Amino acid sequence: MTTTDAEMVPPKKEVNSQAAILKAAIKEFAERGVDGARIESVARQANFNKSLIYRYFTDKHGLFEAALQSKLEERNENVEKIPVDITEILQFYFEENLRDQNYVRVLLNEAQQNNGAPLIDEPWRQDYYQKHINRLKQSQAEGAISDEFDPVCLMLIFTALVFFPATLPQLAQLISGHNVDSAEFKEFWNECLAAITKLLQPRE
């Protein structure tokens, strides 16, 4: 696609073009981080001219912001669809993080390269996690989780539990003796999650 072609992309094709670019960008940022990522590489993977990327996203920072937000929006759509049962929620996100390794790697690269500057789309992302905290509050109100636990504290703990195998798979394998992608590890970790959530149930 030439620069002239890029300037004449119809509205419907424009949406598809952006989606293809964002998909390629997530892969590039996951592999190389924000600093190491190259617009040329994203354009090559998406099969578009890099001028189209600059037209849509201005620069690499804008592209990373849009790519990360697209992944969060993808997950945000599932918040109201997942079950209220906390064990099933944890199992869902544990397996989702194993499935979507690029999303996990993008978050790791963001953490490694952040030097104290404001986070990208911080208010929007805080709202995303607040929805999950509200789900925990709902579980507490329905008696599924003891209300003696602070829901924000629980959110931090649960986030660590569902991200650990995907972010540090080598440690999970050394400790458990199983590759995190194996059926044995998934069954073992789901049993661990179920046991932990039982401890959080209200006392008689």
Rank of each mutant, 00 (worst) to 15 (best):
T3L: 00
A6F: 05
V9P: 03
N16L: 15
S17V: 15
I21N: 04
A24V: 05
E28I: 07
E40D: 07
S41N: 03
Q45K: 14
Y56G: 02
Y56A: 03
F57T: 05
D59C: 01
K60L: 09
G62A: 06
F64Q: 09
A66I: 12
Q69R: 11
S70D: 14
L72A: 07
E73I: 09
E74M: 06
V79L: 14
K81P: 01
I86H: 11
L90S: 04
E96L: 01
D100C: 02
N102V: 02
Y103F: 13
V104F: 02
R105I: 07
V106N: 10
L107I: 13
N109T: 03
E110I: 08
E110R: 07
Q112F: 04
Q113S: 08
Q113P: 03
L119R: 15
D121W: 04
D121T: 13
E122Q: 15
Q126S: 05
Q126E: 10
D127W: 02
Q130I: 02
K131G: 05
Q138Y: 07
Q138E: 14
Q138I: 05
G143R: 07
G143T: 10
A144K: 13
S146P: 04
C153G: 11
C153A: 14
I157C: 01
A160F: 12
F163E: 13
F163L: 14
P165W: 09
A166G: 10
L171M: 15
A172M: 12
A172Q: 09
L174D: 11
S176A: 11
H178W: 14
V180L: 09
V180M: 09
C192W: 00
A194Q: 00
I196M: 02
E204M: 13
E204W: 10
